Amino acid sequence: MEQKNGSSLTGFILLGFSDQPQLERVLFVVLLIFYLLTLLGNTTIIALSRLDPHLHTPMYFFLSNLRFLDLCYTTSTVPQFLIHLRGEDRSISFGGCVTQLFFSLGLGCTEGILLGVMALDRYAAICRPLHYTVIMHPRLCALMASASWLIGIATSALHVVLIFLLPLCGKNKIDNFYCELPPLLKLACVDTSVIKSEIFFAAVIILFIPVALITFSYGQIVRAVLRIKSAAGRRKAFGTCGSHLTVVSLFYGTAIYAYLQPSNNHSQDQGKFIALIYTIVTPMVNPFIYTLRNKDVMGVFCWGYDSR
């Protein structure tokens, strides 16, 4: 069979859930509702964080970055999937696939790093409250956010170059609803063990280093909170961290399942449903988790940013 690298193909076919047409009808309605809620929830938190001076803090600066990431991440995959669910044409151009992979992977990597940075912010706020404004200086916050974006984009660019240099032997059917690394690797007609090792190594860095940072930060936070004599004070301290821990569990749980579990441990259909969770469900529920569990955001949302 003639070997062709990715750049020699004119486009790909995204199979999605085409083998389950009844499921696709349900998915279209559900995903459309979820996508609209994602736009509404994330845009609202970004607007509130910018408009209300009480929310001009490092925590809400990073939170706004996360919400913007979720907006872009979902928009890079879901609108096209909705179009494919409504029509027969499931094609995506070569350039479109490269762009989609670059943005979805880069935004996902950036979010993983930012979640680790937010754990440091919570550590400084609870364990070093008297030095918080000095530690979390606006310039340092901007530097950490910029570094997160740069690392995420650089990691994505490296993976995109490696994956599309592989010979695909004319294969162009992607067994997923968007261009993602695992199904793209399956199109290659050569041994991909080296690239899989590189992807695994990068995933360990992007996922496990922030997880280690989060574990350390919250270990110190728990120790500090347990020393608080007031029960109300302990509840308040844990309450400020509960939303972040919930989001961390959703993000890292699905990401580790998708990228660090051996591919033969789960079916392709399972992989697709996991992809649905981290591309649409998680970005949709995250703003509601932060809103419902955060008195500052709820106060601004309910009473207006000029009323306090």
Rank of each mutant, 00 (worst) to 15 (best):
Q3M: 08
Q3C: 10
L9E: 08
T10K: 15
L14T: 03
G16Q: 03
S18M: 07
Q22I: 00
E24T: 10
L27T: 03
I33D: 08
I33T: 14
I33Y: 09
L37Y: 07
L37F: 13
L39G: 07
L40R: 04
R50N: 15
M59D: 08
Y60G: 03
F61N: 07
L66W: 00
R67G: 03
F68A: 15
T74S: 15
P79Y: 01
H84N: 14
L85V: 05
G95S: 11
T99L: 15
S104L: 03
L105Y: 07
G106P: 09
G108M: 01
G112V: 01
L114M: 14
A119V: 05
Y123V: 02
P129C: 05
R139E: 03
A147V: 15
W149C: 12
A154G: 12
L158A: 10
L158T: 01
H159S: 05
V160H: 08
L166P: 07
L168M: 15
C169Q: 13
C169A: 14
C169W: 06
N172G: 12
L184G: 06
K186I: 00
A202L: 13
F208E: 04
P210D: 08
T215E: 12
Q220I: 03
V222Q: 10
R223F: 10
H244R: 09
S249G: 06
A255L: 02
I280E: 04
T291A: 13
T291W: 08
L292A: 07
L292P: 00
K295M: 00
M298P: 12
G299D: 09
V300T: 11
F301S: 09
C302G: 02
